[in-house]
Computed example of a mutant assay.
Amino acid sequence: MKISVSFTLWLLLGSISPSESTDYQKSFPQDIYAVLREMTASLVQLKANMLQTQEQAAQLKTEMDKLKTEVDKQKTEVDKQKTEVDKLKQQQIVQQVAFSASLVPKDQRATTGPFPSLTTLIYKHVVTNIGNVYNSNTGVFTAPVKGAYNFEWWVGAFGDNSHGSGAWLVKNSDLLFMNFEQQADGFMSSSKGMTLLLDVGDVVFIRLQTNTVVFDDGGHHTTFSGFLLFPM
Rank of each mutant, 00 (worst) to 15 (best):
K2I: 12
V5E: 12
F7W: 09
L9D: 07
L9M: 11
I16N: 04
S19A: 08
S21F: 06
Q25Y: 08
Q25L: 15
K26C: 02
S27D: 15
P29M: 11
I32T: 06
L36T: 07
R37C: 04
L43K: 11
V44R: 12
K47D: 15
M50Y: 14
Q52I: 01
Q52F: 03
T53Y: 12
E55Q: 15
Q56V: 11
A57F: 09
A58C: 05
A58L: 13
K61T: 07
E63Q: 13
V71F: 06
V71L: 12
D72S: 07
Q74L: 15
K82Y: 05
E84Q: 14
V85C: 01
K89V: 04
K89L: 05
Q91C: 02
Q92F: 09
Q92M: 04
V94K: 12
V94W: 08
V94T: 13
V104N: 05
V104E: 02
D107C: 02
D107I: 00
A110G: 02
T111L: 04
T111K: 08
T111S: 07
T112G: 01
S117I: 10
T120I: 06
K124T: 08
H125R: 14
H125D: 15
V127M: 13
N129D: 09
G131F: 03
V133P: 01
N135W: 03
N137I: 00
F141I: 03
A143K: 08
V145F: 09
G147D: 07
G147S: 05
G147R: 02
E152K: 14
K171T: 00
D174V: 14
L175H: 14
G186Y: 05
F187T: 11
M188D: 01
S190G: 08
K192P: 00
L196C: 02
L197S: 14
D202P: 10
V203H: 08
I206A: 06
V214T: 01
F215L: 04
G218C: 01
G218D: 02
G218E: 07
G219Q: 09
H220N: 14
T222P: 13
F224R: 04
G226E: 07
M232F: 11
